[in-house]
Design a protein around this nucleic acid. Structure first.
Length: 821
DNA sequence: GGATCGACTTAGCAGGCTAAGG
DNA sequence: CCTTAGCCTGCTAAGTCGATCC
């Protein structure tokens, strides 16, 4: 409350500038943002350490800054061809009106046509469900639900006992059995999505354990002195201490925000208990706390499997009551049934509020949502619930207001729940619906790229970017969030134009993930962008100064109800996937098909710019894999040499086959030898140490040094052999490799391994920065994957993990091979 | 008619877990 | 058989978008 009223005050100061230009709106473009908010774009990791400039040039909504330039001037300098279009000036207002009316009528036409189309659709899609009449349907459905509900209740108790089914062969049985009673919501269309449930019963929400003070020898030190902190304060110090050696812990903004809040909590709790006054962050020494946490971590690692299992079971028992709820009489899983524990806020990218204290949430902060007649779950001892509501129009079971931004956090059902599933299906159906409108939309925006109305042009370009490059809508952000943008909020500096028609996008998008693309665009788009960037616009100014997502979305609704910017992402992602899958031939092994599926998935992920940080071990593992391949090739060549030794005439007969022998130089070969020998040496040395450790532990005498020497001798022999081979060119083959045929077989096997390894390596490299998961979970219609699996005989488990199979059950059970996005 | 709120989807990451590889 | 790398899941931050408020 304090936060929001504070914000309001801040906002007030900048929100009342009346827009005196509105009359001449059409020919005087306005730049919404006056000044660059932050330092130029940085890739995420760097950015997070950088202090954003403290200059408060607040953008907070609609600080409208007039830029002196009119569209006439702007448009008149378009290359000649366009010029003639651009006469207009004083009568532009009229034009506008005419245009508006014009488009309005045509839109109405479109709408009515759409309606017709929709009607047709409804009829087809409901033919199995008997009557197309809505009212009737509802009734039937309800009836159905009731009966099922009853049946379910009876079986429920029984079912509860068959919980932990696993993936085994008995699974089939189980599954089928479950199917019988499982409510297949996707088989009855739900028309009224305003009401989310009829009855909702749950046990409330799980709170994190109370803070346990650290042992007395683990303390914060200030200026060399141990500090006695009240537990509530120690807890906060501990949050920071735990992050000491992380990027967050080293980030000065994080440190400052943490320290401010830390001091605040310290004050609230009456200061330190041994008279030390804490003033400066730099004098705080968290290392002892940090080390203690590390120690605890180590201890946990050393736990025996049995111990672990016990702990896990204990935890599961505590969680059990909260994991499920009863929705319309059916048992459904709850998603985040735990209240978020207190911690330091870890904002992503260069977040101004990163490091602030996220306070503990108490039952008093929680609002529950459940049926009127449902029993209200007991709050934790000594506490009361903040509020209890009975709102059937929402999906959440509980909510609370978080203290940093004053935003609301919800407890909601799990991804495999019927409610989530229904939303999901709806989302994809909406995206599919776009199919029938996309041609018109594209035609329109192509035409409007040349509209003489600035607003129309901006809309057209924006939709183009959203459609072609899958940009997000890009809403305005406030100053106390990370500076990230989407389409509508793109600024001057995010787009670089390279004639004749290349555009370089470089900006931070959602989660401060960098979007960098050098792309060719349609000539007219290029020209428009040029106009949008024309002086007096400069870095910091909005490219689309007339646009925001709501304007854009309102425009899109004219084509199709429910159409918004984000639908394009879903549509294009799924469309791309369909197209890519269509290209895959139905041949080869499952592994090969999977690889191709993943490649298709990857195209989508790249389209949506779904990235992940390259793992620390990535470079190393690529290195390892490629040297392994090199060694395989070397071995293959070695065998080929061996073949020639046995039968020199082969060289002429199979010239091609032996050609690669010359590809490897002696130097390369020697390097490979060294590598192998080094590795072998290391391997045996390690083994020696490890074996001895083990023997020592068992109280047995260690291996004599002789053993190690013997092992090393063997390695040495190998080394000498390689050296001889290198010098003389004569391969010393093992007795088991004594015929040409045997060698041929070995070579064949090597070829196979090389092929597999190479593909894997390539995949690894291409995937290193791309995250396939996000698109799989959110953008690619799961039915596409299901169809793919059916048609290509790939087990669905290879594509969807258990959780995903649960989430997409509706898709898995509802499509046949013919289904298309 | 814009700012704000509320509710929902989408996003990457940490760390535990598991299965592949030596 | 044991390690190690990569997968999976849980977590929660960060978007989108319609509703509501003034």
């Amino acid at each position: 409350m304090t936060v929001s009223s504070w914000d309001k005050m801040m906002d007030q100061s900048s929100s009342n500038e009346s827009n005196s230009d509105s009359s001449s709106d059409e020919d005087v473009p306005l730049a919404k943002t006056a000044v660059a908010k932050k330092s130029p774009v940085k890739a995420k990791s760097e950015a997070s350490l950088e202090l954003s400039s403290p200059v408060k040039s607040k953008t907070t909504k609609k600080k409208i800054h007039k830029v002196e330039y009119d569209s006439d001037e702007a448009l008149s300098s378009i290359p000649d061809k366009k010029k003639r279009k651009v006469k207009v000036k004083s009568d532009e207002d009229d034009d506008d009106k005419i245009n508006v009316v014009d488009s309005d009528t045509s839109l109405k036409q479109i709408k009515s046509e759409k309606r017709k189309l929709n009607k047709k659709k409804i009829v087809t899609s409901t033919r199995e469900t008997a009557s197309p009449k809505k009212g009737k349907l509802t009734k039937v459905k309800k009836e159905n639900g009731k009966i099922k509900k009853e049946a379910k209740k009876l079986k429920k108790t029984v079912k509860d006992e068959i919980e932990g089914e696993d993936e085994g062969s008995s699974n089939n049985n189980n599954d089928e059995e479950e199917d019988e009673e499982e409510y297949k919501w996707w088989e009855n269309q739900n028309e009224n999505d305003e009401i989310k449930w009829q009855s909702l019963i749950h046990n409330g929400i799980m709170f994190p354990p109370e803070y346990e003070p650290l042992p007395s020898h683990v303390k914060l030190y200030y200026d060399g002195q141990p500090v006695d902190l009240p537990p509530q304060v120690e807890e906060v110090a501990g949050f920071y201490a735990a992050l000491l050696e992380t990027d967050h812990g080293r980030n000065p903004i994080f440190q400052k925000n943490f320290f401010d809040d830390f001091l605040q909590v310290l004050k609230e709790n009456g200061g330190t208990q041994n008279g030390i006054e804490i003033k400066s962050f730099d004098k705080c020494d968290f290392t002892r706390m940090f080390k203690y946490f590390e120690l605890k971590k180590e201890e946990r690692k050393l736990q025996s499997p049995l111990e672990r299992k016990k702990l896990r079971e204990e935890r599961a028992k505590l969680e059990e009551p909260f994991k499920f709820c009863e929705l319309d009489g059916r048992k459904e899983q709850v998603g985040n049934f735990k209240v978020e524990p207190p911690d330091l806020f870890r904002g992503r990218g260069a977040h101004p509020k990163t490091g602030k204290l996220k306070r503990r949430v108490y039952p008093e902060d929680i609002t529950l949502n459940l049926s009127e007649n449902a029993p209200i779950p007991d709050p934790p001892k000594g506490h009361k619930w903040g509020m209890v509501r009975h709102d059937k129009t929402v999906q959440w079971l509980a909510m609370w207001k978080e203290n940093i931004f004053g935003t609301i956090k919800y407890v909601r059902l799990a991804a495999n729940s019927s409610l989530k599933g229904q939303s999901d299906l709806k989302k994809f159906e909406k995206a599919r619906q776009l199919k029938t409108h996309i041609d018109l939309i594209r035609k329109d925006y192509k035409r409007n790229l040349k509209s003489k109305l600035m607003l129309e042009r901006q809309k057209a370009v924006a939709i183009y970017l959203i459609d072609v490059f899958a940009l997000r809508a890009g809403g305005e952000k406030s100053e106390d969030e990370a500076d990230t943008v989407g389409c509508c909020s793109l600024r001057y500096e995010h787009v670089t134009l390279k004639p004749p028609n290349t555009v370089i996008f470089d900006f931070l998008g959602k989660d401060s993930i960098r979007y960098y693309q050098e792309v060719e665009v349609e000539k007219q788009v290029f020209k428009d962008l040029m106009i949008f960037k024309r002086p007096p616009k400069q870095p910091g100014h909005q490219l689309f100064d007339r646009l925001d997502p709501s304007i854009l979305n309102k425009h899109l609704q004219n084509y199709m109800s429910g159409l918004t910017a984000k639908v394009f992402r879903t549509y294009n992602a799924s469309k791309t996937m369909q197209d890519q899958l269509d290209l895959i031939p139905n041949e080869g092994t499952v592994a090969e098909k999977l690889l191709k599926y993943n490649a298709a998935n990857r195209t989508v992920a790249i389209l949506c710019n779904h990235q992940r940080t390259i793992s620390k071990s990535h470079a190393q593992s690529v290195e390892k894999a490629s040297s392994k391949i090199e060694e395989l090739i070397w071995q293959k060549i070695r065998y080929k040499k061996g073949m020639l030794q046995m039968d020199p005439t082969l060289k002429k007969k199979k010239f091609k086959f032996f050609k690669e022998i010359d590809d490897m130089t002696k130097e390369q070969e020697s390097l490979i030898h060294d590598r192998i020998i080094n590795r072998e040496t290391e391997k045996w040395e390690k083994k020696y140490v490890r074996d001895n450790d083990k023997l020592k532990f068992e109280g047995e005498p260690p291996l004599p040094e002789e053993t190690l020497k013997e092992w090393m001798n063997r390695v040495k022999e190998l080394k000498e052999q390689y050296k001889r081979e290198l010098d003389t060119g004569v391969i010393e083959l093992k007795p088991s490799q004594n015929t040409v045929e045997k060698l041929e077989k070995l070579i064949e096997k090597l070829e196979e391994r090389i092929k597999v390894s190479s593909i894997q390596l390539k995949d690894k490299e291409e995937n290193s920065e791309v995250s396939l998961g996000t698109s799989k979970i959110n953008y690619i219609d799961p039915r596409l994957s299901v169809v793919f699996c059916k048609k290509y005989n790939v087990p669905i488990e290879k594509i969807f993990t258990k959780t995903l199979r649960d989430k997409f059950k509706w898709a898995i059970e509802s499509v046949d091979e013919e289904w298309r996005f």
